[in-house]
Protein backbone atom coordinates (compact mmCIF):
# COMPACT_ATOMS: atom_id res chain seq x y z
CA UNK A 1 0.00 0.00 0.00
CA UNK A 2 1.34 3.46 -0.87
CA UNK A 3 1.08 6.70 1.07
CA UNK A 4 -2.20 7.31 2.91
CA UNK A 5 -4.01 10.61 2.72
CA UNK A 6 -5.68 12.36 5.62
CA UNK A 7 -8.98 14.21 5.20
CA UNK A 8 -10.51 15.90 8.25
CA UNK A 9 -8.50 13.58 10.43
CA UNK A 10 -9.64 10.44 8.62
CA UNK A 11 -6.94 8.38 6.93
CA UNK A 12 -7.85 7.47 3.34
CA UNK A 13 -5.92 4.42 2.22
CA UNK A 14 -4.25 4.56 -1.17
CA UNK A 15 -6.13 1.55 -2.41
CA UNK A 16 -9.07 0.70 -4.61
CA UNK A 17 -12.33 -1.20 -4.65
CA UNK A 18 -12.43 -3.90 -7.28
CA UNK A 19 -15.77 -4.53 -8.99
CA UNK A 20 -17.15 -6.92 -11.58
CA UNK A 21 -19.49 -6.82 -14.53
CA UNK A 22 -23.02 -8.03 -13.81
CA UNK A 23 -26.36 -8.11 -15.57
CA UNK A 24 -28.93 -5.66 -14.26
CA UNK A 25 -32.49 -4.47 -14.63
CA UNK A 26 -34.76 -1.91 -13.05
CA UNK A 27 -38.37 -2.69 -12.20
CA UNK A 28 -41.02 -0.13 -11.38
CA UNK A 29 -43.58 -1.42 -8.91
CA UNK A 30 -46.71 0.63 -8.39
CA UNK A 31 -49.66 0.18 -6.07
CA UNK A 32 -52.83 1.81 -4.81
CA UNK A 33 -50.82 3.73 -2.22
CA UNK A 34 -47.14 4.08 -1.21
CA UNK A 35 -47.48 1.55 1.61
CA UNK A 36 -48.40 -1.34 -0.64
CA UNK A 37 -45.86 -0.39 -3.26
CA UNK A 38 -43.19 -0.51 -0.56
CA UNK A 39 -44.49 -3.84 0.77
CA UNK A 40 -44.06 -5.36 -2.69
CA UNK A 41 -40.67 -3.78 -3.28
CA UNK A 42 -39.39 -4.88 0.11
CA UNK A 43 -40.48 -8.45 -0.47
CA UNK A 44 -39.11 -8.51 -4.02
CA UNK A 45 -35.69 -7.37 -2.87
CA UNK A 46 -35.61 -9.59 0.21
CA UNK A 47 -32.93 -12.25 0.63
CA UNK A 48 -30.90 -10.63 -2.13
CA UNK A 49 -27.77 -9.43 -0.40
CA UNK A 50 -25.16 -11.40 -2.31
CA UNK A 51 -24.98 -13.50 -5.44
CA UNK A 52 -22.94 -15.98 -3.43
CA UNK A 53 -26.10 -17.62 -2.14
CA UNK A 54 -29.09 -15.50 -3.09
CA UNK A 55 -28.94 -15.75 -6.85
CA UNK A 56 -29.01 -12.00 -7.20
CA UNK A 57 -28.35 -8.74 -5.43
CA UNK A 58 -31.34 -6.44 -5.24
CA UNK A 59 -32.42 -3.32 -3.49
CA UNK A 60 -34.76 -0.39 -3.48
CA UNK A 61 -33.35 2.40 -5.59
CA UNK A 62 -35.86 5.08 -4.68
CA UNK A 63 -39.50 5.92 -4.07
CA UNK A 64 -41.35 7.26 -7.12
CA UNK A 65 -44.05 9.91 -7.09
CA UNK A 66 -47.26 9.25 -9.07
CA UNK A 67 -46.02 11.58 -11.77
CA UNK A 68 -43.01 9.35 -12.39
CA UNK A 69 -44.80 6.04 -12.91
CA UNK A 70 -46.48 4.64 -16.03
CA UNK A 71 -49.91 4.34 -14.41
CA UNK A 72 -49.82 7.52 -12.35
CA UNK A 73 -49.81 5.72 -9.01
CA UNK A 74 -47.23 5.76 -6.21
CA UNK A 75 -44.31 3.49 -6.97
CA UNK A 76 -40.91 2.17 -6.05
CA UNK A 77 -37.95 1.58 -8.35
CA UNK A 78 -35.90 -1.52 -7.59
CA UNK A 79 -32.65 -2.69 -9.14
CA UNK A 80 -31.75 -6.36 -9.50
CA UNK A 81 -28.26 -7.60 -10.38
CA UNK A 82 -27.05 -11.07 -11.19
CA UNK A 83 -23.98 -12.73 -12.65
CA UNK A 84 -25.68 -13.83 -15.88
CA UNK A 85 -28.68 -12.84 -17.93
CA UNK A 86 -30.13 -16.32 -17.54
CA UNK A 87 -29.92 -16.25 -13.75
CA UNK A 88 -31.29 -12.72 -13.68
CA UNK A 89 -34.28 -13.77 -15.79
CA UNK A 90 -34.96 -16.62 -13.36
CA UNK A 91 -34.75 -14.32 -10.36
CA UNK A 92 -37.05 -11.75 -11.93
CA UNK A 93 -39.71 -14.32 -12.66
CA UNK A 94 -39.55 -15.88 -9.21
CA UNK A 95 -39.46 -12.65 -7.28
CA UNK A 96 -42.11 -10.82 -9.27
CA UNK A 97 -44.29 -13.92 -9.33
CA UNK A 98 -44.11 -14.48 -5.59
CA UNK A 99 -43.77 -10.93 -4.27
CA UNK A 100 -45.48 -8.54 -6.71
CA UNK A 101 -48.20 -10.63 -8.32
CA UNK A 102 -49.25 -11.68 -4.83
CA UNK A 103 -49.19 -8.20 -3.27
CA UNK A 104 -52.52 -6.32 -3.23
CA UNK A 105 -53.15 -3.70 -5.92
CA UNK A 106 -49.68 -3.82 -7.47
CA UNK A 107 -48.56 -3.54 -11.08
CA UNK A 108 -45.05 -3.94 -12.48
CA UNK A 109 -43.28 -2.27 -15.38
CA UNK A 110 -39.86 -2.25 -16.99
CA UNK A 111 -37.69 0.54 -15.67
CA UNK A 112 -35.07 0.57 -18.42
CA UNK A 113 -35.63 1.36 -22.09
CA UNK A 114 -32.41 -0.01 -23.54
CA UNK A 115 -31.18 -3.57 -23.25
CA UNK A 116 -31.96 -7.17 -24.05
CA UNK A 117 -35.59 -7.95 -23.21
CA UNK A 118 -36.28 -10.75 -20.73
CA UNK A 119 -39.63 -12.00 -19.51
CA UNK A 120 -41.45 -9.95 -16.91
CA UNK A 121 -45.14 -10.67 -17.33
CA UNK A 122 -44.66 -12.95 -20.33
CA UNK A 123 -44.68 -16.15 -18.30
CA UNK A 124 -46.53 -14.90 -15.23
CA UNK A 125 -49.56 -14.41 -17.46
CA UNK A 126 -50.23 -18.14 -17.39
CA UNK A 127 -51.42 -17.69 -13.82
CA UNK A 128 -54.50 -16.31 -15.54
CA UNK A 129 -55.43 -19.82 -16.71
CA UNK A 130 -56.58 -18.55 -20.06
CA UNK A 131 -58.45 -15.50 -18.75
CA UNK A 132 -55.42 -13.24 -19.14
CA UNK A 133 -55.63 -10.39 -21.64
CA UNK A 134 -52.81 -9.07 -23.79
CA UNK A 135 -52.86 -5.38 -24.59
CA UNK A 136 -50.49 -3.42 -26.81
CA UNK A 137 -50.28 0.20 -25.72
CA UNK A 138 -47.87 2.60 -27.39
CA UNK A 139 -45.76 -0.26 -28.72
CA UNK A 140 -45.47 -2.08 -25.40
CA UNK A 141 -47.28 -5.29 -24.57
CA UNK A 142 -48.95 -5.56 -21.20
CA UNK A 143 -50.60 -8.57 -19.60
CA UNK A 144 -53.73 -8.20 -17.53
CA UNK A 145 -54.20 -11.19 -15.26
CA UNK A 146 -57.50 -11.51 -13.37
CA UNK A 147 -56.88 -11.72 -9.61
CA UNK A 148 -59.12 -11.44 -6.60
CA UNK A 149 -58.71 -7.66 -6.16
CA UNK A 150 -59.20 -6.89 -9.85
CA UNK A 151 -56.43 -7.44 -12.33
CA UNK A 152 -52.65 -7.64 -12.13
CA UNK A 153 -51.01 -5.58 -14.87
CA UNK A 154 -47.47 -6.48 -15.90
CA UNK A 155 -45.38 -5.32 -18.81
CA UNK A 156 -44.36 -8.26 -20.96
CA UNK A 157 -40.60 -7.78 -20.75
CA UNK A 158 -37.97 -5.78 -18.95
CA UNK A 159 -34.65 -4.73 -20.41
CA UNK A 160 -31.43 -6.24 -19.09
CA UNK A 161 -28.29 -4.19 -19.35
CA UNK A 162 -24.67 -4.51 -18.23
CA UNK A 163 -24.11 -3.41 -14.65
CA UNK A 164 -21.31 -3.16 -12.15
CA UNK A 165 -21.35 -5.08 -8.89
CA UNK A 166 -19.09 -5.21 -5.90
CA UNK A 167 -18.08 -1.61 -5.43
CA UNK A 168 -17.23 -1.20 -1.77
CA UNK A 169 -16.08 1.07 0.99
CA UNK A 170 -14.56 -0.12 4.28
CA UNK A 171 -15.11 2.01 7.36
CA UNK A 172 -12.54 1.43 10.11
CA UNK A 173 -13.71 2.95 13.40
CA UNK A 174 -12.92 3.11 17.08
CA UNK A 175 -15.96 1.13 18.19
CA UNK A 176 -19.33 -0.26 17.19
CA UNK A 177 -21.30 2.93 17.82
CA UNK A 178 -19.05 5.13 15.73
CA UNK A 179 -18.74 2.55 12.96
CA UNK A 180 -22.49 2.17 12.71
CA UNK A 181 -23.10 5.92 12.72
CA UNK A 182 -20.55 6.46 9.97
CA UNK A 183 -21.93 3.62 7.89
CA UNK A 184 -25.46 4.94 8.24
CA UNK A 185 -24.33 8.41 7.17
CA UNK A 186 -22.49 6.95 4.21
CA UNK A 187 -25.44 4.85 3.06
CA UNK A 188 -27.81 7.81 3.41
CA UNK A 189 -25.58 9.86 1.15
CA UNK A 190 -25.23 7.05 -1.37
CA UNK A 191 -29.00 6.62 -1.55
CA UNK A 192 -29.28 10.09 -3.02
CA UNK A 193 -27.29 8.89 -6.03
CA UNK A 194 -29.41 7.41 -8.87
CA UNK A 195 -28.83 4.00 -10.48
CA UNK A 196 -27.25 2.33 -7.43
CA UNK A 197 -28.26 0.04 -4.61
CA UNK A 198 -26.55 -1.07 -1.46
CA UNK A 199 -27.91 -4.63 -1.23
CA UNK A 200 -26.99 -5.61 2.33
CA UNK A 201 -29.23 -5.04 5.36
CA UNK A 202 -29.44 -1.30 5.88
CA UNK A 203 -26.88 -1.03 3.11
CA UNK A 204 -24.12 -2.31 5.39
CA UNK A 205 -22.32 -5.63 5.70
CA UNK A 206 -20.28 -6.59 8.76
CA UNK A 207 -19.14 -9.93 7.41
CA UNK A 208 -16.88 -8.81 4.63
CA UNK A 209 -15.41 -11.78 2.84
CA UNK A 210 -12.31 -12.86 1.05
CA UNK A 211 -12.21 -15.31 -1.84
CA UNK A 212 -11.73 -18.94 -0.80
CA UNK A 213 -11.48 -20.75 2.49
CA UNK A 214 -9.46 -23.40 4.27
CA UNK A 215 -12.55 -25.53 3.75
CA UNK A 216 -12.65 -26.58 0.08
CA UNK A 217 -16.43 -26.53 -0.08
CA UNK A 218 -16.62 -22.81 0.68
CA UNK A 219 -16.04 -20.21 -2.04
CA UNK A 220 -15.74 -17.32 0.41
CA UNK A 221 -14.81 -16.86 4.03
CA UNK A 222 -14.32 -14.13 6.59
CA UNK A 223 -12.04 -11.26 5.63
CA UNK A 224 -9.53 -11.97 8.42
CA UNK A 225 -7.33 -9.03 7.50
CA UNK A 226 -10.11 -6.69 8.61
CA UNK A 227 -11.38 -8.59 11.67
CA UNK A 228 -10.43 -6.84 14.93
CA UNK A 229 -10.58 -10.16 16.73
CA UNK A 230 -7.72 -11.37 14.58
CA UNK A 231 -5.50 -8.30 14.65
CA UNK A 232 -2.76 -10.06 16.63
CA UNK A 233 -3.39 -13.46 15.07
CA UNK A 234 -3.91 -13.15 11.33
CA UNK A 235 -0.93 -13.58 9.05
CA UNK A 236 -1.57 -10.17 7.54
CA UNK A 237 -3.90 -7.87 9.42
CA UNK A 238 -4.85 -4.49 7.94
CA UNK A 239 -5.86 -3.11 11.33
CA UNK A 240 -4.13 -1.19 14.07
CA UNK A 241 -5.05 -1.61 17.70
CA UNK A 242 -7.22 1.51 17.75
CA UNK A 243 -9.53 0.01 15.10
CA UNK A 244 -12.04 -2.14 16.92
CA UNK A 245 -14.94 -2.27 14.49
CA UNK A 246 -15.11 -2.37 10.67
CA UNK A 247 -18.18 -1.98 8.49
CA UNK A 248 -18.42 -2.34 4.72
CA UNK A 249 -20.81 -0.73 2.28
CA UNK A 250 -21.23 -2.72 -0.94
CA UNK A 251 -22.44 -0.81 -3.99
CA UNK A 252 -23.99 -2.15 -7.20
CA UNK A 253 -24.69 0.29 -10.02
CA UNK A 254 -25.86 0.40 -13.60
CA UNK A 255 -22.52 1.88 -14.71
CA UNK A 256 -19.06 2.37 -13.23
CA UNK A 257 -19.75 6.10 -13.17
CA UNK A 258 -22.76 5.47 -10.94
CA UNK A 259 -20.70 3.36 -8.54
CA UNK A 260 -18.00 6.04 -8.54
CA UNK A 261 -20.53 8.75 -7.74
CA UNK A 262 -22.05 6.72 -4.92
CA UNK A 263 -18.68 5.83 -3.42
CA UNK A 264 -17.63 9.45 -3.56
CA UNK A 265 -20.90 10.58 -1.95
CA UNK A 266 -20.44 8.09 0.88
CA UNK A 267 -16.82 9.09 1.45
CA UNK A 268 -17.70 12.78 1.51
CA UNK A 269 -20.42 12.20 4.09
CA UNK A 270 -18.12 10.19 6.36
CA UNK A 271 -15.19 12.55 5.97
CA UNK A 272 -17.44 15.51 6.74
CA UNK A 273 -18.14 13.97 10.14
CA UNK A 274 -14.40 13.71 10.67
CA UNK A 275 -12.19 11.67 12.92
CA UNK A 276 -13.88 13.23 15.93
CA UNK A 277 -16.87 11.06 15.09
CA UNK A 278 -14.75 7.99 15.60
CA UNK A 279 -13.72 6.96 12.10
CA UNK A 280 -10.03 6.14 11.88
CA UNK A 281 -9.63 5.09 8.26
CA UNK A 282 -11.45 4.50 5.03
CA UNK A 283 -10.30 1.64 2.88
CA UNK A 284 -11.59 -0.68 0.16
CA UNK A 285 -11.53 -4.33 -0.76
CA UNK A 286 -9.84 -5.74 -3.81
CA UNK A 287 -8.20 -8.88 -5.12
CA UNK A 288 -5.04 -7.29 -6.38
CA UNK A 289 -6.75 -5.95 -9.45
CA UNK A 290 -6.54 -9.22 -11.32
CA UNK A 291 -10.15 -10.37 -11.10
CA UNK A 292 -12.44 -7.40 -11.65
CA UNK A 293 -12.10 -4.90 -14.49
CA UNK A 294 -13.49 -1.95 -12.53
CA UNK A 295 -11.10 -0.30 -10.07
CA UNK A 296 -12.36 2.54 -7.88
CA UNK A 297 -9.28 4.25 -6.41
CA UNK A 298 -10.25 6.12 -3.28
CA UNK A 299 -7.75 8.92 -3.78
CA UNK A 300 -8.79 9.42 -7.39
CA UNK A 301 -12.44 9.52 -6.39
CA UNK A 302 -11.69 12.27 -3.88
CA UNK A 303 -9.90 14.15 -6.66
CA UNK A 304 -13.00 13.91 -8.82
CA UNK A 305 -11.87 11.08 -11.09
CA UNK A 306 -13.93 7.98 -11.88
CA UNK A 307 -13.14 4.31 -12.13
CA UNK A 308 -9.90 3.21 -13.77
Amino acid sequence: MAEPRIENGVVIDDTFAEAFPMKATRLIITAHNPTWAMHAATATTGFATSVIACGCEAGIERVLSPGETPDGRPGVAVLIFSMSGKELAKQIERRVGQCVLTCPTTAVYAGLDEGEPVALGRNLRFFGDGWQISKMIDGKRYWRVPVMDGEFVAEETTAVTKGVGGGNLLILARDTDTALAAAEAGVAAMRSVPNVIMPFPGGVVRSGSKVGSKYPALMASTNDAFCPALTPLAKKSELSDEVRCVMEIVIDGLTDADVSAATRAGMDAIIARGSAAGVVRLSAGNYGGKLGPFHFHLHKLLDGEGAA
Binding site: I137, Y142, E151
Partner: peptide
Protein backbone atom coordinates in the same frame (compact mmCIF):
# COMPACT_ATOMS: atom_id res chain seq x y z
CA UNK B 1 -63.81 -4.95 -10.94
CA UNK B 2 -61.20 -2.24 -10.52
CA UNK B 3 -59.72 -1.43 -13.94
CA UNK B 4 -58.01 1.80 -12.97
CA UNK B 5 -54.47 0.59 -13.69
CA UNK B 6 -55.29 -0.49 -17.22
CA UNK B 7 -57.42 2.59 -17.72
CA UNK B 8 -54.58 4.88 -16.65
CA UNK B 9 -52.32 3.32 -19.29
CA UNK B 10 -55.02 3.44 -21.96
CA UNK B 11 -56.13 6.99 -21.17
CA UNK B 12 -52.55 8.24 -21.24
CA UNK B 13 -52.07 6.58 -24.62
Amino acid sequence: HDTRVFWALMARS
